[in-house]
């Protein structure tokens, strides 16, 4: 077990978002966290990543380093892609030569050209920026990675490529991950296990493992799982909620 959330609850200005959340993430396990919009997925991720203090509950961390990949790339505009990837390493005081090596390796892994490494974020396309953000996360050799809807803003084709990249990296580096998404198909593609946060603040609506391992599921299998689950009452909030808002 890498991380355990125990009876976590959080309130913003007195408004309870959720309470009594228990979740443990095992070593090498990728957990997808889904839920209707506004249910506190990102808040829960930020608590798990230590970016905000929960109002209630405790966190048990059993790892050295984590990394967060945000919805927006959040690159420093005044640093080149190379320096952005090295940022996490620099903040933990890794030497310059080692940093340079790690950057080259991670950049190649996420499919960035060596030529693009000396460009500033403004000179890169949206997809390349998100690749840089993923490389920056992977560069610190994290034991656990927190993904906060990282590919929500990229187009469908690129989304697949980036998902495959994460699946591949997770299998190779054996990191654990908490992957927040609102897309059930994405959750089924990348994760071992799926938890759905309910919209009314009453903890998880469901917690189930996904058949097969990420990367080996065919598109057909992913599609079938999503089809079956979309009729499942446990997910009705995820689908009906959207319809209620639309009407």
């Amino acid at each position: 077990m890498k991380l355990r959330l125990q009876a976590i609850g959080h309130a913003f200005l007195g408004r309870q978002v959720f309470e009594k959340i228990d979740l443990s993430i095992d070593s090498g396990q990728v957990i997808a966290l889904v839920g209707p919009s506004g249910c506190g997925k990102t808040t829960l991720l930020q608590i798990a990543a230590g970016l905000i203090e929960p109002s209630q509950g405790r966190l048990h961390r059993k790892y050295r380093r984590h990394a967060v990949v945000f919805q927006e790339p959040r690159l420093l505009p005044w640093m080149t892609a190379r320096d952005n990837i090295a940022y996490g390493l620099r903040s933990v005081g890794v030497e310059k030569e080692l940093r340079a090596k790690a950057v080259e390796r991670r950049a190649a892994e996420v499919g960035l050209n060596a030529r693009d490494l000396d460009k500033y974020p403004a000179e890169l396309s949206g997809g390349m920026r998100q690749r840089v953000a993923v490389a920056r996360g992977l560069a610190v050799d994290p034991d656990i990675v927190f993904f906060d809807e990282p590919f929500a803003a990229v187009d469908v084709g690129l989304k697949r490529v980036l998902q495959d990249l994460v699946i591949e990296a997770a299998a190779r580096d054996h990191f654990s991950a908490l992957f927040v998404t609102h897309d059930l198909a994405e959750a089924v593609r990348v994760a071992h296990r799926l938890v759905a946060l309910s919209g009314n603040g009453e903890g998880f609506a469901t917690d189930r493992s996904i058949d097969g391992t990420p990367g080996t599921r065919t598109d057909r299998e992913v599609f079938d799982i999503v089809e079956t689950w979309s009729r499942d009452p446990a997910f009705h909030e995820l689908f009906d909620g959207a319809r209620e808002h639309a009407s």
Partner: peptide, 16 residues
């Protein structure tokens, strides 16, 4: 502040 949160998530010190 979003960039600041990013830097904190990597454990960057206040000075950095």
């Amino acid at each position: 502040r979003a960039l600041d949160a990013m830097a904190r998530s990597f454990g960057a010190s206040a000075w950095m």
